[in-house]
Design a protein around this nucleic acid. Structure first.
Lengths: 247, 247
DNA sequence: CGGGTGTTTGAATAATGTCAAACCGAGTGG
DNA sequence: CCACTCGGTTTGACATTATTCAAACACCCG
C-alpha cells in the first residue's frame, strides 16, 4: 500500500450508505428518491494513484462524484509548468462544465487510490431537467467554487511566499475540518507533496521547502510524509493576515 | 465627462431593446416572455464613476445586470492590498451568490459611469423557481466564471510579469472582441489604469509601468489614457506562451 | 492657474527562481 | 537480507524578478 494511503478505497453498498451523499449534488434528492439516482448512475469505480479521471482536451463521457481519496485538478502551461487548480477531497463533484460536449480545460489526476461514483455525461442534462433540485444544488456548488477560486486568486496576488503558504495550508485544514470528523483535531492526512504546494501557489519547490522549514521552526505547521500537523492555528491566521507594509 | 468616458450611459426603452439581453440570464426568456421579466425587475439605474454597487460585508437587496460601462470586482486583503477579481463589461451579471442572504465577499465599484438593470434580491429565487430556463442559463454563466477564474489563476501562478501582463491584456481584448463590434478591430476603449492591471495581477504599479514600457517598445501593445492598442496579437500570443526555461 | 490623479524613472533592497548536488526512506529485485 | 533505484526532500551559491522609497512629471478638470 502506498505510503500516503491511510484509507483504502471503500465502495458504499448503495446511495443510502454513501459517505458523501450530503456534501454533493445527491443531497438534493429525498431519501425516497435515491433509487432514481441509483438507476441513473453508471457504476462505482476504483482507481489507483496517478490514474487520470480525464485529461485536458479530452471529451470524457462521464462525470464523477469523489467517494474517497484525493484528486488533483491541474493545467499545464505552454512553458511546461503545472498549475494546480484544486485539491479535491471526498464529496467533490468532478468533470462538470457548462457545455458538457466541449473538451475539458484541465486534467484530473488521482493523488491517492480513489473511489468514484460514475454518472453518464450524455444524459446528465436529462437528470438536471427531471430534477430541478439537482440543478439547484449544482448551481450552489459551482457558485461556491467561484468564491473559493476568488479566494485563491486573492491569496496568490496579495501575499508573499511565507504568508501565502500559511494561508493555503490553513484553508486546506479548515475546509476539511468542516465535513470531516478529524480523528486528530489538528492534523490531516493528505497526499500532499511540496511540489504540489508549489504548483498550487506558483512557487518553486526549492523555495517552498525553505518556507516550510521556516513555518516548522516557528512552530506553526509541519508537513511530513503525508501528514499535515497544524501546530498553531491562531499563529497561522495571524501570520497570513500580517501587513507586509504599513499603509 | 470623465476622460475615460467614451460612451455615455444609455438606458434601453425596454427589455426588447436591451443591448445585453443575449449575453446574460435574460437570454433564457423567449421574446414573448420578456414582459414577465420586465414586471419582475425593480428599475434601471445610472451610477457615476467610483460609485459602488455593493461592498464587502454588505447584504445588498439587489442584483444587477450591467447594461453599459465597466465595473471592477475586488477584495481588500488584511494588509490593505487590493486584489481585482474581475473587470466586468456590459452583459455581466453582478451580485449573485449561492446564499443570497449572506454578506458579500467582494466589492463592486464603477470604473466608469454605469447603467445597470436592477432585480430584487429577496424574490430572485422565486424567479429561478418559476423559470427553470433562467436557472439553467445562470448555471451556465457561473460555470464559465469558474473557468475564467482558473485561467486567471493559471496566469498568476505560472507566468512572470511580462508574460503575465501580455496574457492578461490579450484575454481582455479577446473577451471583448467576441461580443462587441469593436469599431476599430485592434483597439479597445476601457477605463484601465496601470494600478488596476497591477491589482489584478498581483504586481506593483511601478513594475507594471516598466513592463508596459517594455511591451510598448516591442510594439506588442500600448495603453494610453483609456485606450488599449493591440499592435501585434500574434506576437503577444507567442510571448505569453514562451517557455521561460527549456524543459 | 492650481490640485489631483495617474504615469514615469532611478537606485537600493528584498523575494524568488535557477542550477547543482547531496540526502533520505520506501519499495524492488537479486 | 542487501544493494539499488526512485520519488521526494534539503541545502548552498548565484541569477533574475519584483518591491520599496523617493521624486519628478504630465495631463485633465474645475
Amino acid at each position: 500500500m502506498n505510503k500516503y494511503q491511510r484509507e483504502p478505497p471503500h465502495l458504499p453498498k448503495d446511495c443510502h450508505h454513501c459517505p458523501v451523499r450530503e456534501s454533493t449534488v445527491c443531497s438534493a434528492m429525498r431519501e425516497d428518491q435515491l433509487a432514481l439516482l441509483e438507476a441513473f448512475k453508471t457504476c462505482d469505480r476504483i482507481l489507483p494513484v496517478r490514474a487520470h479521471l480525464y485529461r485536458t482536451g479530452e471529451r470524457p463521457h462521464e462525470i464523477y462524484n469523489l467517494l474517497s481519496g484525493w484528486v488533483t485538478l491541474y493545467r499545464i502551461l505552454p512553458s511546461g509548468k503545472r498549475q494546480v487548480l484544486e485539491i479535491a477531497a471526498p464529496g467533490a463533484f468532478l468533470g462538470y462544465q457548462a457545455r458538457l460536449g466541449d473538451p475539458m480545460l484541465h486534467s484530473a489526476e488521482c493523488s491517492s487510490d480513489v473511489a468514484v461514483c460514475v454518472f453518464p455525461r450524455r444524459t446528465f442534462p436529462v437528470l438536471l431537467e427531471q430534477h430541478p433540485a439537482i440543478r439547484r444544488k449544482l448551481l450552489e456548488l459551482i457558485a461556491d467554487d467561484v468564491v473559493r477560486g476568488q479566494d485563491q486568486l486573492t491569496n496568490m496576488g496579495g501575499r508573499f511566499g511565507l504568508e501565502r503558504v500559511a494561508y493555503f495550508l490553513l484553508q486546506l485544514h479548515l475546509h476539511q475540518h468542516r465535513r470531516r470528523d478529524a480523528s486528530d483535531e489538528n492534523s490531516l492526512n493528505i497526499p500532499l507533496t511540496q511540489e504540489m504546494i508549489g504548483d498550487a501557489l506558483g512557487i518553486t519547490v526549492v523555495h517552498i521547502n525553505r518556507i516550510l522549514r521556516d513555518l516548522r521552526e516557528r512552530r506553526l505547521v509541519s508537513l511530513h510524509r503525508g501528514t499535515l500537523h497544524m501546530l498553531d492555528l491562531e499563529g497561522l491566521r495571524r501570520l497570513s493576515e500580517e501587513s507586509q507594509r504599513v499603509p
